[in-house]
Design a binder for these strands. Structure first.
Lengths: 234, 234
DNA sequence: CGAAGTCTTGACTAGACTCAAGTTGGGTGG
DNA sequence: CCACCCAACTTGAGTCTAGTCAAGACTTCG
């Protein structure tokens, strides 16, 4: 799982070894645990479970601004020593790996491709954020929910976490999905019912099965090209 | 204007000189001109005017995903040689400055602070994107419009483009504001009327005057801390 | 088995969209 | 210099998507 960085840029095996040696696996965090560690300037990657970035609004509401799946880097602040973009919370039992920031940075020197890989990961995160803007700005409820499912499926698939029959764990409550998509819990519920009624998905206790991916993709208007760190032809 | 990068990180005067020498000013672009130059791997900065990034949806709608003000870097793709995140269009007469990508990158070697400044600029853009998600996800129309006005005022202020009495040029049609905020043109119009009726703003042909910034800030729930590239205490 | 959190359902409300028809204002050409 | 034109802005009416409130059913877990 840790090797996902190499999806962005071919990495030499020495670097991979160095990374493996440097990573410290964290203990298992419980659901709703806070992953924010403002003091530490570590490079942190989610290894298992799921997490989300959010912001508490004045009126007590919460807006989820990003969802992390295994293989995602929790915070790119180490690149600029800027503060993290908001609190980070697990949504289920999760584990992270950490490498001390300075150790990671020093590997940049020895192999510039690690830098490129890191920047590509950051660029992909930016693309995710942009797609979220598009969802919230110009898609209706069914499209938003469908799009989220397609996106998460794609991202989990990239790290081998999609089982047979397009099924995967989705440890998010409907309330959390609503907070991520700018919809009320009730409306998320009704939207999911439509998708189930139309035999497009099945959901049961945190496990989603996509019965008809083409139709879901079509309802979502989903195009996964933004997830792939496509290289310009050199 | 070009020196805005130094807001992110103190830059040596040699670097500033080198930047100044390397920049080629573009001719004046007309409104609605396309700034996307996929072939060229230049570092491009908007110098005057305004521009926005957008995406065309299947149904003919358009979602504006980002607004650029003078001093903003148009495309961070040169960092990762990844494709630009969508088309970029001027909304008024505009001018950009370009530095060939390789030339810019080679300056990284001589002074690492330029790299930090560039990354900080990218981080700020990410923060903008996140705040947009928050707006679209959990703010109602008046809050969105107010927030946009506060944000643009702040960003223009940072480059000295806010005149006396908190007035500035806003070369966006109401339709474009709607596309950026996920609102219909009609609703944007009505929302602006409310703000004018309450003597909070004045608008006339592309020029906005904020009569009562505290009240606008309050309606928007605006907090400019995300715009400032705050450094962690070292 | 009980309790808390999650999911579901119904009824009502409201914020925002669409459609449609003006009105204004800046720019162009006769 | 005026008439015209087009784009942007306004206004009104009706509709609908999604939100709110409230109550009940189902899970999961201690």
């Amino acid at each position: 799982v840790i090797l996902r960085l190499s999806r962005f840029e071919p990495l030499s095996s020495e670097i991979k070894d160095a990374l493996r040696r440097g990573v410290k696996r964290s203990p298992l965090y419980s659901p709703y645990a806070n992953l924010l560690r403002d003091g530490a300037r570590d490079v942190t990657m989610l290894l298992t479970g799921m997490a989300c970035r959010f912001k508490l609004m004045g009126n007590g509401k919460r807006q989820i601004t990003g969802i992390l799946v295994p293989g995602d880097i929790c915070d790119f602040g180490f690149l600029t020593s800027s503060p993290p973009p908001g609190p980070l919370m697990t949504t289920t039992y999760s584990q992270v790996g950490r490498i001390p920031g300075p150790a990671f940075m020093s590997l940049f020197e020895s192999d510039p491709s690690l830098m490129l890989a890191t920047l590509s990961a950051a660029a992909t995160e930016a693309a995710l954020s942009q797609e979220r803007v598009i969802s919230l700005g110009s898609r209706i409820a069914v499209e938003r929910v469908s799009h989220l499912l397609c996106e998460i499926r794609s991202r989990l698939d990239a790290v081998g976490l999609v089982g047979p029959g397009n099924s995967f764990e989705l440890p998010l409550t409907q309330a959390e999905i609503g907070e991520a998509l700018g919809l009320s819990t009730v409306h998320v519920n009704r939207t999911l019912q439509v998708l189930r009624r139309d035999k497009i998905i099945t959901m049961r206790s945190g496990k989603v099965t996509i019965e008809d991916l083409p139709r879901l993709t079509e309802r979502a208007g989903f195009d996964d090209s933004y997830l792939r760190p496509a290289r310009l032809s050199p």
